[in-house]
Structure formats: structure tokens, C-alpha cells
Design a protein around this nucleic acid. Sequence first.
DNA 1: CTGAAAGCGCTAACAC
DNA 2: GTGTTAGCGCTTTCAG
Lengths: 347, 347
Amino acid sequence: MDGPEPFSNSAKSTPTIRDVAHRAGVSPATVSNVLSGKPSVTSSNRALVVQAAAELGYKSNYMASSLRRGRTRTIGVVVPNLANEFFSRLVTYWEALSTRAGYEILVVATQDEVETERQRIQSIVARRVDGLLVASALDDFGSAKDLASSLPPTVLVDRAFGCAPFDTVASNNFQAGKLGTCHLLALGHRDIALVTSADSHLHLRARIDGYRSSMTEAGLTDRIRIVIGGQSVEDCRGAVEQELRRPDPPTAIFATTFFSTLGAVKAIRALNIAFPEEMSLVAFEQSEWMTVFRPYLTSVSQQSDQLAAVSWDLLMKRIDGTNDAPQHIKVPVHLTIRESARATTLR
Amino acid sequence: MDGPEPFSNSAKSTPTIRDVAHRAGVSPATVSNVLSGKPSVTSSNRALVVQAAAELGYKSNYMASSLRRGRTRTIGVVVPNLANEFFSRLVTYWEALSTRAGYEILVVATQDEVETERQRIQSIVARRVDGLLVASALDDFGSAKDLASSLPPTVLVDRAFGCAPFDTVASNNFQAGKLGTCHLLALGHRDIALVTSADSHLHLRARIDGYRSSMTEAGLTDRIRIVIGGQSVEDCRGAVEQELRRPDPPTAIFATTFFSTLGAVKAIRALNIAFPEEMSLVAFEQSEWMTVFRPYLTSVSQQSDQLAAVSWDLLMKRIDGTNDAPQHIKVPVHLTIRESARATTLR
DNA sequence: CTGAAAGCGCTAACAC
DNA sequence: GTGTTAGCGCTTTCAG
């Protein structure tokens, strides 16, 4: 022997259910019954099997079991991007839920690209996951028929709300739009600019619609200003900066995505505007770092835990064979009032 | 028919390789050969098979394939917590790497608890993952022999550096400790407090050792101050605040974890100390939000992309059957100089 | 180059 | 209660 073996199991082959059966002096079927907790086994045999299994260090082979049973107890989780805190939080909750339910999750990222999404879903479906949790890059997920027709039970989250024949769950984005806008309105603001990353997706448009609706109800239809900042912080900063440089700048900004929140802050800082004294901001999402940021950001945020829990339950029901009509569930959002949005000062 | 079928595939059973073979008028073996890209098939047969497969919407059953071949092309990823940006970034990179290599990742979180870690690893090992990437809760991972002896190729990341017989990779945490300290020293600081979350782990102790070493080399052994703040931002804030309230407060703080960075900032703010004029800070890690934070934080940060890439390569080599001695690789860290650490002003 | 046959390890009927 | 048998869907010898 020269040096330790890198992996001690590299030589001896893994014990099978037959080995255990042999050692315990029973049949493979009995071993299987014991291991899967079937009651119809004498306690003496049960003890024999348990001991033999322990001695051999036996571990059931999930591949074989899955093949035979036709289910894998694995859920495919499809998100645009794990680097985005919203999605990583969602995955965190799903992971916890899966553990409790005896499932495992296969995680794939799509970069929010349709083609990547298609491919990644293909591969995990080939792995025969029992179900799919997907935050799609597409609002009409499943429109590519070849894909949709070969899917296991699937729940759509965040994106593609209402997309039949799937169950879908998302935050109440319209409410989110209203909540932020109304808060600012109540503080006396009339010139409120909404800034977002894009308007290409349903969920983003719903937020815009909420804003529109509130502005209209307040009789401020003509003051509606929507800034589409783009997908990066820098792009958002540029767009907001331009808006703030207009002769008639807004007195408040409502950022409706995480990136546009960051962009808005940067823009305000770049122009040396007194913040929050001269410019109010309602941010989107919450994050640990916000606790050290000054001014403490007032924000509209999603309840990721709820989104995860609701979608998980829906999926489990489908897997259990429910044949109900597709459900579409909206989860309320929260407005957390802190310091970044203040009452208007007259100008 | 009342309402749309929830899932269109719910009725018809998935086609198997035999169905394809039958339709193409060849044997299952030939289909298998075509699908796995073996050259020894006439192009006419190949075409037949490809077409039949397409018409049937055939998808290879990975369970069956895995069972037969004895490998799953799945890697188990074990991290304390996805909510932690460092780990979610690591997982992001691993996911990308896995896609490129034709693997899938099974992600589990351990909450940094030893027992949870044991259980979660057990379950994914039972699923016969081809390899394991783990950021362990334990510095002597694998000491529980029953576990270690039944593991597939495994690479330890971030934690448990040097823990044989595994390959391990981590940031050069000693260097991280030195880098931050030397920077502050070069700026003229002599009273530098290190703040960290805990000293229970190797990687955290290595950072402390780097600090110690630099302070000692500067002849400041008697000024060494180490603040163990705890696992939450609030606990860290409290601990730092106490340190700053001493009659002889430090002129600079070196935070060596993400949470202690946040805690330090909160403490500085809470005491209304002019920052960075009267207090310098070297932070740990970088994050998108830091771009909007003022003062722009000078920080020591890990190269997650490198950590992920190096560990992935090591794992692939092991899976390919390398029998080299276990490797232990340190990845350099970065010091990014910005605005939060300034030259000392005399007092 | 192709097909027949033998399992991978497990579980579900069905006898006993 | 327990054992025997027959596959799940695939890949892989091994003849032809």
C-alpha cells in the first residue's frame, strides 16, 4: 500500500437486494417488503433482514426501483437563473419542501432563453422526473406542442400566469403595481415615474397595468411615465438618469424590478439629488443588504415562500392524480414602508 | 369532453425502444446503436430509425439506460444553503458546467447541520449519482466511516480543505486574511479589528491566521483584536458595536465574512461614526448591490467561478477513473480597492 | 452490419 | 407470510 485509496468503495461492488436476502436467509421479495415498510412480514424475518442490510451496508438502488415502479420521486426545477435572488430563494424553499416530502430536485437554469429552456426541459423529462416546476422564459409556455404533449405534471411559477392547460401561480403583480403607486400617491406625489426592466413579459406588464390603473383612478392619466430600462443595472441607471434630467422630472420613482431598483438608486446618486428629501423611491423586492442601506428602502416585495409552497402543493396534487381543471393562483404581495418614500415638498 | 385535459400525455403510454424498432422494421439493438451514435449502422437503417423515433416522439428512458450502464450522468451538489449568495453562485457555475458536459445536478441543502448533511447525502447516493460536490458542514468530512466508505467520487469545496482521501478545493483563505490586513496596514492603520462570524471552521480560522500573521509581521502582535460576531447580521452588529465603544476603538475593521460585513456597516452607522473618514472597512465578498452602496466598499472576494471550475474538473477526472493521490487546490482571492478603506488620520 | 438473448436491481402478482 | 416468477426499458455480448 502506498498512500490511502482515494475511494474505499472503488473495488468491492455494491451489495444488491439478493445479497441481503441470501445473508438473511430469505427471499428478495421479503427484503423488498421489509425495506419498503410493508407490514406483512414476521418481526423475526424483519429483524434478520434489517441486520443483514446493515452488515452489508446495503443501499437500495434507486435506478432499479424507479424503473420498476415507474416513478422517480424527483422533481425538475427550471428557472432562468440561480444568480437572481428571487429564483434562488424559490429554489431554497422548494428544496426544503422536497426533502420533507421525500423528493429530490433536479435544478436547471435556462438563462431566460427559449431554446435553452426547451433543451434543458427535454433532458430532465428524459430522466423521467415525476413533475416539473418551471419559471418559463416564455409567456405561452407549452405552445411548442411537441414539448407540451410529453410533459409530466407541471406547474408554472412567476411567469406565464394563466397559461392553460397548466396549473400556474404568480404574485399578484397588478396589485404590486397598484400598491407602490397608491403609496406614492397618498404621500402627495403626482409625477411618478415607473421604471422596469422590460415590458416583454406578462408579469412585468401586470405591474405596469397596476400603476396605470392607479394613476388613472387618481386622474393623472396624462402624467403616466413609463421607463423601460433594460436588463442590466447600468442600462436602468442610464434610462432613469435621462428621465430625471428632463425639464419636468418626476418627484417619485417606482421601480418594479430588482435591477431597475438598483439602477434608480444609482441614477439618483449620480445626479446628486437629495435622497429621499428631493426624490422618493419605492423599490422592488427585499434583501438582506437593504438593512444596511440608507435611506432604508420602502419596497413592494413578493412572498417567495408562499409562491413556492402553493406551487409545490399544486404539483403534488397533480402527481397524486387529481384531474381538476387547471388552477391559477395569485399570491398577494407586500408593501413594506420604510424611509425612501416621503411626502412631497411643494416646488 | 368537459374542459381541456390537464395533461395531454396522461392517457397514451410513452413509446419504448421496441416501439421504435417495430415501426422502423429493425431490432431494438439497432435503434439503441443509432441513438447512442454508434457508427456501425447503415445510413438507410439510421434514417429509418431517426424518422420512426421522431414520429413516435420517442424519448430514451434514462432510468433504464442508467440501470443498465451503471451510471446516471447526475452529480449531487451539497451545500449548506442556497440563500447564501456565495453558494448560489457556486451552484450557478456548476449548473452551467454540468450542462456543457451532459450532466444534470441534484441539489440539496444541509442548513449547515451535520445530521441533515448525512441524511441528504445518503439519499442522493442511493440515487447513484456519479459524483458528489460538497461544501460540508464538517471540517473532517467523511470521518463518519459508514458514510465515507460508500461514497462515489467526491470533491470537497470551500470547507474541509485538505481532508483526505478526498480531492479538496478552497479559496486561499490565509491569503485573504493577509490581503485585507496588509491593505489596511499600508494605509497606516495599526488598530485593526478583525470581525468574523465564527472560528469553528477551518476556512474561517485560516482567514484569522492570515490576519494574525500580517499583524505579527508588522510588529503589532499586542494589537490583535478578534471579534467573533455570530451567525446573524444583528449579532455581528452587536459585537462590533461593543468593540467600537471601547475606550480604545480600532481605526479600521476587517470583516471576513459576508454577514460580519453587514454587521460592521450597521454598527458603524448606529454609532454615527463618519464613514469612511473616521473608520475604515475592508469587506468580504462582492455583490451587485454594493455598486449602489456608499461608500463603495473595498473588499476581499472569492473567485466562485474558479472554485466551481476547478472542483468540477477534479470531479470529472475522478469519475473518468483517475487514481492520482488526492489533490488539494487553493484558489487565489482578490482585493478590490474602492472607497471604504482610507489612510489613517492622526488622532 | 444486424438480431436474439441475457440481464442491470428491483417490485408486484400470484401461487404456495 | 413467503418465495417464485416475470418483467420495467435499455444496452451489450455474441452469433449469424
